[in-house]
């Protein structure tokens, strides 16, 4: 089993930390993982992306030109990564702020209104966990119990009281994905 994921959006949306939680969840499930961020003169509001590879075998390249799943959270990232999804792969996106929706016919395209759902919860910071829930619903590559274990590992202990809220956000994302 091998899943190559690109997550791309604005800095501040939790793109890198979502990738880290997926990677930690993979480790909890006994998989090999790599997490490779774009790093540059980036800042809140600029673009950010991360490539996560989960595999049952040793991972060679942490950098991919094609991915199985692209999670796209702004238009700039759509322009850049829509074409990167392998034929038959998954493109998951938040339509909020997207002016040119994806048009490819050879991939599965799913929508998650994560900004809207996060607004409903009154906690905008759960945004990336709603997106994560949507992804896990469409691609159950890691089991939810391992995601919760991964969350515990990725979040500093002083913030562990927030884990139930994050878990609820994941469930919300699972229900809201279309």
């Amino acid at each position: 089993m091998k899943e190559e994921i690109i997550i791309a959006g604005f800095g501040g949306q939790g793109v890198l930390s979502m990738g880290k939680i997926i990677a930690y969840s993979g480790i909890m499930q006994g998989m090999e993982v790599t997490w490779m961020p774009s790093y540059g003169p980036e800042m809140r509001g600029g673009t950010a992306n991360v490539t996560v590879v989960l595999s049952s075998r040793r991972i060679s390249s942490p950098i991919v030109s094609r991915c199985d799943t692209a999670i796209i959270l702004n238009q700039q990232s759509m322009d850049k990564f829509e074409s990167s999804v392998r034929s038959g792969g998954l493109l998951l996106y938040d339509p909020n702020g997207i002016t040119k929706p994806p048009a490819r016919k050879d991939i599965t395209i799913c929508k998650i209104e994560a900004a809207e759902e996060a607004a409903k919860t009154g906690n905008a910071k759960t945004y990336n966990m709603i997106v994560l829930g949507a992804y896990l619903k469409k691609r159950p590559v890691v089991q939810l119990e391992n995601v919760i274990k991964g969350l515990k590992k990725s979040i500093p202990e002083r913030h562990h009281k927030l884990i139930p809220a994050n878990e609820q956000a994941i469930h919300r994302g699972m229900e809201a994905v279309r």
Binding site: E32, T34, M36, P37, Y39, P62
Partner: peptide, 10 residues
Amino acid sequence: DGIVGQMMEK
């Protein structure tokens, strides 16, 4: 190099 410095692995 910047890749092994910046990437995360187990």
